[in-house]
């Protein structure tokens, strides 16, 4: 199928909605899919682990 033909065909039709283009972009979804859990779960969790204070001294 000639690419030109397809191009012409698509120009005549209405544009694809932006959201649909976003959902079709698997690599962009991949980026968010990796970034969100890594930041929200892992990195945030590690930050909390290193910030834990030492056990203070108690007199029972």
């Amino acid at each position: 199928m000639a690419d030109e033909e397809r191009k012409i065909e698509e120009q005549e039709e209405e544009p694809i909605p932006a959201w649909q283009l976003f959902y079709d972009n698997i690599m962009l979804l991949f980026f968010f899919g990796v970034a969100v859990p890594t930041l929200v779960y892992t990195v945030w969790g590690l930050m909390e682990i290193v910030q834990i204070p030492d056990l203070p001294s108690y007199s029972p």
């Binding site: 968010f32 779960y41 969790g45």
Partner: peptide
């Protein structure tokens, strides 16, 4: 499916809810 891709992985927190270490906000959001 897109909501799955973005958010479903953070549910790992389910195992850490009564652990020491993590703050309430880390627990609640995740």
């Amino acid at each position: 499916f897109v909501l799955y891709i973005f958010f479903i992985n953070v549910a790992s927190e389910h195992h850490l809810l009564v652990d020491p270490i993590f703050s309430n906000w880390h627990k609640i959001i995740n």
